[in-house]
Design a protein around this nucleic acid. Sequence first.
DNA 1: TAAAAAAATCCAAACGTTTGCACAATTCTC
DNA 2: GAGAATTGTGCAAACGTTTGGATTTTTTTA
Lengths: 330, 330
Amino acid sequence: MTTITDIAKALGITPSTVSRALAGNPRVKEETRLAVKKKAEELGYEQNVVASNLRKGQSRIVGIVVPRIHREFFSNVIGGAESVLNKAGYNVLICQTLESLDAEIKALKTLKNYRVAAVLLSHAINAKNGNHVKEILGSTPLIQFDRVFPDLPGAKIVGANCEGAYKATMHLIQSGYKRIGTLAGYMTSQAYVERLAGYRMALEASGMPFDNSIVYYNTIVRETGYEAAKKAIEAGCDALYSCGAFSALGAVDAFREKGFKGADDFGIVATSNEGFTGLMSPSLSTLNQHPFEMGEAAARAFLEGRTDTQVIPMELIIRQSSNKNNKWLK
Amino acid sequence: MTTITDIAKALGITPSTVSRALAGNPRVKEETRLAVKKKAEELGYEQNVVASNLRKGQSRIVGIVVPRIHREFFSNVIGGAESVLNKAGYNVLICQTLESLDAEIKALKTLKNYRVAAVLLSHAINAKNGNHVKEILGSTPLIQFDRVFPDLPGAKIVGANCEGAYKATMHLIQSGYKRIGTLAGYMTSQAYVERLAGYRMALEASGMPFDNSIVYYNTIVRETGYEAAKKAIEAGCDALYSCGAFSALGAVDAFREKGFKGADDFGIVATSNEGFTGLMSPSLSTLNQHPFEMGEAAARAFLEGRTDTQVIPMELIIRQSSNKNNKWLK
DNA sequence: TAAAAAAATCCAAACGTTTGCACAATTCTC
DNA sequence: GAGAATTGTGCAAACGTTTGGATTTTTTTA
């Protein structure tokens, strides 16, 4: 591999001048700069970024830590972040924690050892606070997304959970549904608490009672969604706002079983616009969390040195499952 | 940040001994090794991997280049590769090409400049050959997966396209379907050519004619799948093997339109076990390409220094769309 | 107990780049 | 045309680690 020393020797100058020439330092003569560029091209020179990083004490690598790479939400966040960072000349080093706090700690240490320019982080589910992060990262910029700890410094990118849930519930109300339950998540998670709050606000803003007996807690997978939906039907509900996407899938199973034929019979809006929601039958009305944009925002927050909290709006996508003019099954 | 020199000074020894002690070199006394370890712990020492990599001329980073990070298939490959590599002490630097050859070239150069230990690569769709790779990567180990160029050196991990298509078609034949068409892909892609070959082999092995008039080429998205399926129905088909998953979705649209009620009316098996295939109604029988395992295999091929081609079997998953004993819609 | 062998440590260079400061060459000013 | 200002280049150290070979210390052997 050719080095700047090789170029320097070939040109009878010193490595320092070559370095400056390649870096576009104005202190080197136009003439020599061109000669250096030409020779570099000629010898197929490529900078050894490892050496450069060592000398400069910093790298053009941004670390991204996520619970799981192959999760629709996270892979989209990564995709968004990568595209922004790549344009700015950064590369991404990716670590997955598989929801383990130990793995998160290890990942952060590794990234620190690589002297990454910043860390984009969404916490493992069993991280209870951000103390470990502060200690390990020191002065390395931190941008948290989705699963954040408010006490940690630095930018945070979160979804508009409350507002989204409000919008979804309001849509159901305005569509004429009279008794709207909710498939709520775990109250240990900030995101789900906010969604429940949004649901409640929409009801109360419309003069409808908030009835805790049709709030089905801890309902985030298909099976529990199915069971909860059956109960909701028995309880006289004609619509559901689901805090997740997979639980809504279970609800649809229940509707099928009951012979419901369309949104006239029962309406549902789910959170998280997973790919399948638009492909299944009935297609599911959802709240799009814009994971790709979340990744872009996280990357930009780093590039622009922001330290505030950004809230990414959730977009309501109305599909068959809440569209009263549309039969589910032909 | 504390360095090995700090540790050396604190202990009254030299950095070289500290380095060797931490590396577990047998030339250092047990006693000093323990002292070093203790002091390192005490001072919160973390190795500067950048300096280490520079000196050693290689890094513990593996580059992964994919067309798109947020594609179910690729994000799973990455997930699989990361989990294996991480256990072996490697980290992954990820680049997406967004199907652009220029971006692929740039990514490879970047990875080379980082002196990565290896590159795992799935080519951009408009890369016509592997010449650029050879030139840039030089001696850096290359492992290609999914989209590979046979002329490039190094390990290759591919799906068992022919065998999978054979299995899927054979399953339809054995289920009693009499006239089986296929939603074929682009014949410019090796994978689709092989799938068509497997389909043909199954027919011929069963004494059924291969009829090119019910081979629907270039059918890989929902819309074209829908159109092709309508034609297939008119042509008297009672089943389809689809080379993609999204085209099968279009076929299901067509079945719905025709009022088909179950696999007794029409059978279909799709390639690629995308998440939605198991969630839609009817659930789709598919060939699971095992992307996660493909990523694991690619990572292991590097770790074990393999240079052969591995074929990852495709698993037939039988669901409602080809199960004659099961009505699609209740 | 002296010499030889083995074990532990040290020295110094190297990896390839960047950068403050010194020096040389050029241009400008009066 | 002498000195000052400007411009371009060189020198050498530094980033933190690793490693071959030299050196010192300890242990073994006769």
